[in-house]
Simulated scan of single mutants.
Amino acid sequence: MHYRQTILWQKAMGTALAVYRLTPLLPPVERYGMRSQLTRAAISVPANIAEGWTRESSADKAHFLAIAQGSLAELETLLTLCEQLDWFAADRTANLRSLIDETSRMLTTMRRRRRSER
């Protein structure tokens, strides 16, 4: 199976797309600071899933899944900060938060499976 066919990668891509659609709401002064941080963290998730998927060893696959999970936690932290600064209203981030949660749960499941295969 190609990584693009996995629900995990598709959810991660949906998360990245949602971030790119949300970032124009940032204050103009943060368009290059926070926007860059949010988008880098968001795109890191599907990119690392894809890279890990193509690796041959289980250890390499697990490593890239761990990086993806870390990037997702970073994204969630940045999103929380933006909400606390009143840059994003909670009703505007609800869908993104749902995607982050689903992707995180799927990554956790996949990482546990990898550990049990060793």
Rank of each mutant, 00 (worst) to 15 (best):
I49W: 07
M110Q: 09
D86A: 13
D86I: 05
S58L: 15
E83W: 01
I100R: 04
A94W: 00
Q10L: 06
Y20L: 05
E117V: 12
R21A: 15
K11Y: 07
Y32L: 11
E83D: 05
S98K: 15
T80K: 08
G14D: 14
N95M: 12
S58C: 09
L25G: 00
R118L: 09
K11D: 15
K61F: 14
R55Y: 06
V29L: 09
F64Y: 15
R40Y: 06
L96Q: 04
T6F: 06
D91C: 10
T77C: 12
A89T: 06
F64T: 01
E76C: 07
W53Q: 08
T109V: 13
S104M: 02
S98F: 12
H63F: 15
N48Y: 12
E117D: 12
R115K: 14
P27H: 08
T54L: 15
M1Q: 06
L22M: 09
S58D: 13
R4T: 14
R114M: 11
Y20T: 13
T39G: 01
H2W: 06
A68N: 02
L65K: 05
R105H: 14
T80I: 09
R92G: 00
R114V: 08
W53A: 08
H63I: 09
V45D: 06
S98P: 03
S116E: 10
E76I: 04
A73C: 15
E56G: 09
R40E: 02
I49C: 00
R118F: 04
A16F: 00
T80D: 14
R21W: 03
P27D: 04
P27T: 05
Y3L: 03
S36I: 02
R115S: 10
Y32H: 13
V29F: 04
T108A: 15
L107S: 13
A18V: 01
R111M: 15
N48W: 12
S71L: 05
A12I: 04
